[in-house]
Design a protein around this nucleic acid. Structure first.
Length: 876
RNA sequence: GCGAGAGUGGCGGAACUGGCAGACGCGCAAGACUUAGGAUCUUGUGGGUAAACCGUGGGGGUUCAAGUCCCCCCUCUCGCACCA
């Protein structure tokens, strides 16, 4: 018998078998419960990387496990196929994005097949194909009709490298960079004033926030990030009348969450972009200086200007407003930290109780008036070195007219009410969330199905003219601007309303639109009449288990939740939330190597000499860098293809699941991979060595169950229990696999201790049960090997159709208990008693234990603690 | 600063409701089988020569018993960062 099995042949054999038998093809089945298992679909960048291996291995174990548990499991796969790399390839290499994408999809699909993943490929979707993106357009038009898609001119994020607009969610913070950076290329993003299409995600802000409470099986940090991103603030809008009113500015409306501090407002601040500024300064002596300030501030990009450590800067407009509560004249300033897009773009400034206002007041010598007193330590206004920003529970109002003496909480309520009864304003709620800008000035995306007619204005493309196809005659120059403009055939159109000439919208949609509803499309991927078949969606939705990277915590996951609500309101689905359980898997990381001369180097370009790692080229000492996410530039990648060639898909899967809990980072280790490969070979040899034992039925029939038989049964059923519990409890794959390894170790021990020749018929049956359970339990993790051995032990049907084994609690019962004996809480001995022994009996046995007698030194224990089946503790 | 999470052997990591700390794997050591092996198998492996004792980031506390509960502190990772 070979000592290692031929994984190449075995894996190819079963992949072909599964496919030919159509074992992963799934249909609605009213007789069994459904389960929808989904992993985030990949962008077809060219090759599968280890991150893909990990996420798809996780998903596949879930899908296979749930299938064995009797669910009919929807486990689809597809391609998030629109995106910039395809277009860049067109610019650089002259290959059409469609061709580039198609080739990549074909290659990556082969790679995924090689991993033995249980996908229903009949449901494959590809977002770059008209049969998919036409429904983006359809949904877009429905959203236009409902006012959920609209066009507006505003300052937007612009990535100079990708030459396109980005949504707020796609601008990320990066250390060392002043501004935000592009999510894709990490270039610093700038601001541009443009007219663009937006999705009114803010319409669902409250529901998106409330929905977080239902998502109890999502990681806390993802929910925290979403809640923060949505950013709900409850407060009051108040009009501050302008002291000498001018045209169109009778009052300045502010938003505050701290109406309780309103008596302490000693000035106001307006955002530099606000049109109020010009209205306030016109004709004043201050006008020129203010304009210069605004000009200077607005040259900076927003992220820089609003960085928290940036100095507070401002300028007095010359105008005054009246605090409606105190009737005082307070100066109106323009301040760099006030955001035009948030609230009303203007604030009342309470330096005593807001840190920003405090710093501003200090700098410009504006009075600071204390209106909240700390009851525990009396604050002296002149001695403040920071604003007193107390919590709700502490603080009492002072210097606040009739509100003096109220608690902060009571004052918030009372003053809010007063504002409303006086007609000065209203209580209101503000969100941090902004509408989603979806226009992209790129080619490889969904054309926005809108027309600009000279006489009718904006006109949606009629439904029966969809899809608006991407034109082929587009030159890829890389010189920027929407490439669709360059198509001679595309831009010109006929207005469906008046028949006159119209111009097509030449921007395309953000690719995040595509991925915002693909999970719904999988329910009825071939429906040519609608994006989602409501019946199919009703059957399959919501996704029971979603698996993907944490990097989408606010991007894709927020957009997908939004789209689900939109499609629900269009009657296409009945669920409010798309994903019930969310597993965010960690990154795959690896050590990096740095050579002074050759920079980052591949492990294979280094050599080890006398315990030191040297550069193979120049012989210099290699510095071992940080363990980081695998990346080509850091040269710390491991190739899934090499891995499959050398060890096989089962080993690759097993290692990705074993080396770390799924949500944590996984540090790549070549020796760890070998360990997993060794384990699979051990399973292979174990089963083959025992084939004669389990396949031949000779031997006498035993009378009572032998020690071997009860041992086999106990370890078998105990393993079933452990593996099942580990999978049921948050998919603890690493400990489930550890349990399987222990199982195999124990079986080898029994193999050694009980020679095959002497076995009874019952014992042979016990061995068969043990080995078959091993294969069943192993099947979701290492499906090829499990199938091969399942066949070897005599089965003809695929393991895919087998049920998950259940354990018999009686088999777990051991004839003996081993009870640890403690003295004063420290382990001193262990005793063995027959199972079911009474407390008194166990204590008596313990007291006669020689080791214990030594430890007790003749003293009588003050107290004896006995925990059922757990331990005895003598306190002396 | 705010939010989330994490600190356990040489390493990755176990330890469900307080109850034998270190499962499983890697690495290491010794041995067996081998012409040989980086194959395979067996044994050992927290520190301490050793029993004692010490050990879960540090310091207190509760308890018969603490990695686990309570209080204080430190470090690291990730996310958000002037949102009024």
């Amino acid at each position: 018998m070979a000592q290692t099995y031929d994984h190449q042949a075995v894996e190819a054999k079963w992949q072909a078998h599964w496919e030919q038998a159509g074992l992963f093809h799934i249909q609605e089945d009213p007789t069994t419960p459904k389960y929808y298992c989904l992993e985030m679909f990949p962008y077809p960048s060219g090759r599968i990387h280890m991150g893909h291996v990990r996420v798809y291995a996780i998903g596949d174990v879930v899908a296979r496990y749930k299938t064995m548990r009797g669910f009919h499991v929807l486990h689809p796969m597809g391609w998030d196929a629109f995106g910039l790399p395809a277009e860049n390839a067109a610019i650089e290499k002259g290959v059409h994005p469609n061709v580039w994408t198609r080739d990549n999809v074909a290659y990556m699909k082969r790679q995924l097949r090689r991993m033995g993943l249980s996908y229903d490929w009949d449901r494959e979707v590809n977002t770059s194909q008209p049969d998919y993106y036409r429904w983006n357009q359809w949904i877009f038009i429905k959203m236009v009709e409902r006012g959920l898609a609209y066009r507006k001119r505003s300052a937007v994020n612009w990535c100079p490298s990708c030459e396109t607009v980005l949504a707020n969610e796609q601008v990320l913070a990066q250390e060392g960079k002043d501004g935000g950076v592009c999510w894709r290329c990490e270039s610093v993003v700038i601001q541009k004033e443009l007219e663009q299409w937006f999705f009114r995600i803010t319409h669902y802000a409250q529901e998106l926030l409330d929905g977080c409470d239902q998502l109890t099986s999502w990681p806390a940090r993802v929910l925290a990030m979403q809640r923060h991103w949505i950013g709900r603030s409850q407060g009051v809008e108040v009009d501050f009348p302008v002291a000498d009113p001018r045209d169109g500015v009778a009052a300045i409306r502010i938003f505050t969450t701290r109406p309780d501090t309103i008596h302490g407002a000693t000035f106001m601040s307006v955002a530099p972009e606000s049109p109020l500024v010009e209205q306030l300064i016109e004709g004043r002596a201050e006008a020129a200086a203010v304009r210069a300030f605004v000009e200077r501030v607005s040259r900076l990009d927003k992220a820089t200007r609003t960085a928290v450590d940036r100095e507070k800067e401002g300028i007095f407009t010359g105008a005054y407003a009246m605090n409606p509560f105190t009737q005082e004249r307070i100066p109106i300033w323009v301040a760099n930290f006030v955001l035009y897009e948030y609230g009303t773009g203007a604030i009342m400034a309470v330096p005593a109780h807001d840190q920003r206002d405090f710093e501003f007041a200090k700098q410009y010598d504006i009075p600071i008036r204390l209106v909240i007193q700390n009851p525990e330590a009396t604050l002296v206004p002149d001695a403040l070195d920071e604003a007193y920003v107390e919590q709700e529970q502490a603080g009492t109002l002072v210097n606040s007219d009739i509100f003096t003496g109220l608690s902060v909480a009571a004052a918030k309520h009372a003053i809010g009410e007063h504002v409303e009864t006086q007609g000065w304003g209203t209580r209101t709620v503000n969100f941090r969330l902004r509408d989603w800008g979806i226009s992209r000035q790129r080619y490889w995306g969904t054309p926005i199905p809108m027309l600009y007619c000279e006489s009718c204005g904006l006109v949606p493309v009629p439904e029966n003219q969809l899809p608006v196809l991407l034109p082929e005659d587009v030159p890829f120059t890389g010189k920027g601007g929407s490439p669709l403009k360059e198509s001679p055939s595309f831009a010109k159109a006929t207005c469906p309303t008046c028949g006159g000439t119209a111009r097509r919208e030449t921007d395309t949609m953000d690719t995040f639109v595509d991925s915002s509803w693909y999970f719904l499309r999988y329910c009825s991927p071939k429906d040519m009449t609608q994006p989602v078949n409501p019946e199919a969606a009703k059957h399959w939705m919501a996704v029971d288990q979603y698996v993907g990277g944490i990097e989408h915590a606010v991007l894709h996951l927020l957009y997908a939740r939004f789209f689900t609500k939109v499609l629900r309101d269009l009657g296409l689905t009945t669920v409010d939330e798309p994903f019930v359980h969310l597993l965010t898997q960690g990154m795959v990381t690896k050590e990096t190597y740095w050579c002074e001369e050759h920079r980052w180097v591949l492990p294979s370009d280094t050599k080890k000499e006398e315990g030191e790692r040297l550069c193979a080229q120049c012989g210099k000492v290699i510095v071992t860098g940080r363990t980081e996410k695998m990346s080509k530039s850091k040269k710390n990648i491991a190739s899934p293809e090499d891995l499959c060639d050398r060890y096989g898909a089962d080993t690759a899967r097993l290692f990705s699941l074993f080396a770390a809990p799924p949500e944590k980072d996984l540090e790549w280790s070549d020796t760890g991979v070998e360990g997993c490969s060794r384990f699979l070979n051990r399973v292979w040899r174990l089963v083959h060595e025992q084939l004669p034992v389990i396949c031949e039925a000779h031997g006498k029939s035993g009378s009572d169950p032998s020690e071997l038989l009860t041992g086999l049964q106990r370890v078998t059923h105990h393993t079933i229990q452990r593996v099942t519990a580990d999978l049921e409890r948050d998919f603890q794959f690493n400990t489930a696999i550890a349990a399987l390894m222990e199982f195999v170790n124990q079986l080898y021990k029994l193999l050694k201790d009980y020679p095959a020749a002497a076995l009874t018929v019952d014992e042979r049956a016990g061995w068969r049960e043990a080995l078959e359970c091993l294969l069943l339990l192993l099947a979701p993790f290492a499906p090829h090997l499990a199938e091969e051995l399942w066949e070897a032990v005599g089965h003809t049907a695929s393991l895919v159709r087998e049920s998950w084994p259940s354990y018999n609690p009686e088999s777990l019962v051991s004839a003996e208990w081993t009870i640890p004996i403690q003295v004063n809480g420290k382990l001193r001995s262990k005793i063995s008693v027959s199972a079911g022994s009474s407390k008194d009996h166990i204590i008596a046995i313990a007291q006669s234990d020689t080791k214990l007698i030594e430890w007790l030194q003749g003293k009588t224990p003050r107290k004896v603690i006995y925990v059922e089946q757990k331990l005895v503790n003598f306190v002396i």
